[in-house]
Design a protein around this nucleic acid. Structure first.
Lengths: 201, 201
DNA sequence: TCTCAAGTTGGACGACCGTCCAACATGAAG
DNA sequence: CTTCATGTTGGACGGTCGTCCAACTTGAGA
């Protein structure tokens, strides 16, 4: 392969890993499948990463950054009320899930694999932090746009929302019931909207 | 191995599979590891199941029956209010999760594997049905005990609750934050409790 | 142009995989 | 006791796995 900074090589391998896991599942994410996807020779993997597990861990870390970033522009609802804005954003995620289920499934597989490797860890705040921080920002912005204030810490609410998104995902993947997933999204929006003070108060 | 009805053999293999996945993860659930766990010879697997995938699918199906059954006696709160009863039950699940995380992780791994195999399926109501039915029963019983009635169909609320349990699980597995998981459980209990008519109405 | 350290490659290795099936054990029928 | 259909076993097979490393390419410095 042509000369290439190691950093760029690592990024390309991570991207190829995400593509392979999305297409063939975590079980199909072998060293050979990944380097083939990336158009690299077999040896390139152990030149950029110490082991395949290291690459999968890096891919899992990249996921929390990349995936939740796709949700970023979902909460860009116009001047509607807070609950409607939240419901629109969450429903947009459901549509994204229904349109590209393999992608969300791949993200869950990688996240779970990372969770297993950290099962016997100390407290371990974990790599979820970026997703939580992003969701907290979105919630804060949504409240500001609606002219209301959260009655509870946004960090706590953000964690509830992230958990609910995960649950919506696993449940939809199990039954493919898009209507029900939208209903769950509205349920969460209503629950979140119940945690604000009166408008302009 | 001593004579043994095929049905019993299948059940023993499914149980052994759950034990192996809990200990070593889905990646470690090889045919040899499973039959060793079950104390059976290698050939016994293909004598009771057509393939390893069939066994894993059977294990995934057994999970939805078995796992959610563990939650059954969690909602047995005394005469407290509905929200407190729900919160107590959901918090009990969080404690169960924190005490035996590998088990819940194994359940998720098997469920996700099953989800992947059904990715390109027709509508497919899926094997989630028993879990939903059980949760619906629990919610109906809880409302009856509190002397209130659900304002929405219990089936819909049950699906929200199951989704939230999954989300609580994946999130806790990522950050091991038991306090935050309890807070999310209370959040869900409050959201559910907001869906009833006034007591004794 | 020649040298050589650094970067890159793909074949080789041992281990493990799922599956199959020829050989073996078993217990009822004769 | 002998027969034999049925149930059971574990070794063998072809394949794929992750990893390593000897050989090759590259491009800057002498």
């Amino acid at each position: 392969m042509t000369r290439m900074p190691v950093e760029q090589r690592r990024a390309a391998l991570v991207e190829a890993t995400l593509a392979v896991v999305e297409r063939d599942g975590l079980a199909g994410a072998s060293a050979r499948a990944i380097v083939t996807e990336a158009g690299m020779p077999l040896g390139a993997l152990h030149y950029a990463f110490a082991s395949l597990d290291d690459l999968l861990a890096a891919a899992a870390a990249a996921v929390t950054e990349q995936e939740r970033l796709a949700v970023q522009h979902l909460l860009a609802a116009p001047g509607a009320g807070l609950e409607d804005a939240l419901a629109a954003g969450l429903s947009a995620y459901v549509d994204l899930l229904a349109a590209r289920p393999a992608r969300e499934l791949a993200f869950l597989e990688l996240t779970l694999q990372a969770s297993r490797s950290r099962l016997g860890d100390p407290p371990a705040p974990g790599g979820y932090a970026p997703a939580l921080a992003l969701m907290a920002e979105l919630l804060a912005a949504a409240a500001a746009a609606a002219g209301v204030r959260w009655r509870e810490p946004v960090d706590a609410l953000a964690r509830h929302a992230v958990a609910m998104l995960d649950g919506i995902t696993t449940t939809w993947l199990a039954d493919h019931d898009t209507d029900a997933a939208h209903a769950t999204a509205r349920f969460l929006a209503r629950a979140l909207a119940a945690c604000v003070t009166a408008p302009e108060g």
